[in-house]
């Protein structure tokens, strides 16, 4: 499926900012199930860009602004070919154990996914092969943590959302990661976009949001969207992967000046073919 994504975000500042240094993680990845055909980041004020791939394989757009400004806007427009979801692998626990050193960072709790006793108990209750455990645990989360937009913030952890019983896609992903890792399955956080129509119509633009889901290692990486309870497939566009949200904020930076407000995000997704 060929999808076009347009993602706009930014900040407004209370007083004039003379300089700011920023990193944007907005460019979709190219990998086995996804091909990024084009992607362009534009900023306002205009700035020279540098790009690099970070430790987690995400393409980072670096730019600094040196003209006085009270608002910073960043827009990324990309065209991506996606592939249908593959079937999950079915490895043995021995295979997982043998690769544990390689995946150690994705097996241990990260800052936002530290489990509490509740989550630990749930994880140890899951029985069967790694695949059974992954399917059981990740399918269960959306019933326990309700998707309620605005109920949490970027600083919310897995346990916060679990105790609250509600959250956004980011929180549901964090809870899922916490459970999978506790159960001994390497799992990573994925950020990107979802075309929200079940059957996307070519040429029709839908407004969406940044989305987040997880990937578990079952001999190979397998993506699952716990918010919607579906495997990550053609309608999912991958931008970044990491241990949790902290590894891949869409926009981060520092500036010298007074207070600021986040302008929020607008995302438009269009099926092109």
């Amino acid at each position: 499926m060929r999808l076009q994504v347009r993602h706009s975000t930014g900040y407004s500042y209370d007083t004039e900012v003379l300089s700011s240094y920023n990193e944007a993680r907005l460019v979709p990845q190219t990998g086995l199930t996804q091909l990024t055909l084009s992607s362009a980041v534009t900023t306002n004020p205009d700035a020279l860009q540098q790009r690099y791939w970070d430790y987690w394989g995400t393409q980072v757009t670096v730019f600094d602004v040196h003209v006085p400004h009270t608002e910073l806007q960043v827009t990324c427009t990309s065209v991506v070919d996606t592939a249908p979801a593959p079937a999950p692998g079915d490895p043995t626990w021995e295979l997982l154990a043998a690769s544990s050193d390689e995946h150690i960072e994705l097996l241990r709790p990260s800052a936002k996914t530290i489990p509490n006793d509740d989550l630990k108990a749930l994880a140890s209750d899951a029985q069967g092969s790694p695949r059974d455990v992954v399917l059981a645990l990740s399918g269960m989360v959306k019933d326990r943590v309700e998707y309620v937009p605005g109920s949490t913030g970027v600083q919310t952890s897995a346990v916060d959302a679990w105790q609250l019983g509600s959250g956004v896609c980011q929180d549901i992903a964090h809870v899922t990661l916490s459970l999978l890792r506790e159960a001994g399955v390497p799992a990573r956080y994925v950020s990107g976009y979802l075309h929200t129509a079940q059957e996307p119509v070519v040429g029709e633009t839908v407004s969406g949001e940044s989305h987040a889901w997880v990937e578990a290692w079952l001999g190979g990486w397998w993506g699952f969207d716990p918010t919607n309870g579906i495997p990550a497939g053609e309608r999912h566009v991958v931008v970044a992967r990491g241990r949790d949200y902290n590894d891949l904020p869409p926009l981060k930076g520092v500036y010298a000046g007074g207070g600021m407000q986040y302008l929020g995000v607008t995302v438009e997704v269009t099926r092109l073919a």
Binding site: Y52, W53, D54, W56, I104, R108, D247
Partner: peptide, 13 residues
């Protein structure tokens, strides 16, 4: 290696 507090992911690359 990766559990060292001084392992610095931004230094990769």
């Amino acid at each position: 290696v990766v559990s060292s507090s001084a392992h610095c992911t931004p230094a990769h690359g």
